[in-house]
Design a protein around this nucleic acid. Structure first.
Lengths: 143, 143
DNA sequence: TCACGATCGTTAGCCTAACTAATAAGCCAG
DNA sequence: CTGGCTTATTAGTTAGGCTAACGATCGTGA
């Protein structure tokens, strides 16, 4: 590994790596015609059980209008359903449908084909390093 | 660190981490009103000295029409210039202008403020792990 | 030599995904 | 019971990707 570098330089390196990896992953994306954003939202919703659009937007770190659009697409496909909030007439409760859960299960298999393939070519030590890094990055991205 | 996981699961973890980090970085971006994509292209061009649009597109791993748009925005701002190719009438040569270089120099200072700040809060060991991971990811993202 | 296929850059058109601003509906406190 | 806050949506903009198609140019093979 190269010499230890100051945080600003590491930030540049990280952003560059992440940008490029994102582009590569995007290029190989048309799996099941759900976009990464939609899949991520569906997964968060499934993990949480049920959320309001606002809560889901906060979870996904997007603004409410953005989540409105994402949910609309998922609803079109019958992957999420909305039920009225029991006491607050403004809010709605989002939850995954059986179809949505089936879709998620299917993705569990087909998921990340390209990236997983590339990762499988790495040494176990490299994969360990990436795993550790992913956990650190999750922490960094959290508030 | 958690137990070692299979590549498919690691791929999921990585993509999630990267997606979230990208969103966070985007939210804190309005520094000098150049986007990450534009900055990346400008930096690549500066590093290479001079490139054709095709070469720059390949470097940035986007399709030529995408690079046309990015270059158009950079040219509007006077950050890059185009000169005719000396022998091939189809091609053009892109290079950074003095203004573009000044902009890059300014970014060298203000760059990655949020991310660098967050990274500075980590332990040196965590930063080492991220540095190693970034280098691995660069390799993975490369062809 | 010249006609035709390949290459380069651009244009046009589409999509995803994000943002802000504004609006309608509903809640609640004084 | 009214005025202000919250929730969700709509409308409109921007960035950034893609593919398809096109004109200009290059270069090669008959």
């Amino acid at each position: 590994m190269a010499k230890r570098m100051p945080p600003a330089q590491l930030a540049t390196l990280l952003r560059d790596a992440i940008t490029r990896l994102n582009r590569r992953v995007r290029q190989t994306r048309p799996v099941g015609d759900l976009t990464g954003t939609q899949l991520s939202a569906l997964t968060s919703l499934e993990l949480a059980g049920a959320l309001t659009p606002r809560e889901l937007a906060d979870t996904e770190r997007v603004q409410p209008p953005t989540m409105t659009k994402i949910v609309a697409k998922l609803e079109e496909r019958g992957l999420v359903q909305r039920t009225p909030h029991p006491t607050d007439g403004r809010q709605v409760i989002l939850s995954t449908t059986d179809t949505g859960r089936a879709m998620l299960a299917q993705f569990d298999r087909a998921r990340n084909e390209w990236l997983a393939g590339r990762l499988a070519e790495l040494t176990p030590e490299d994969r360990d390093a990436l795993q550790r890094a992913a956990e650190i990055l999750q922490k960094v991205a959290r508030d």
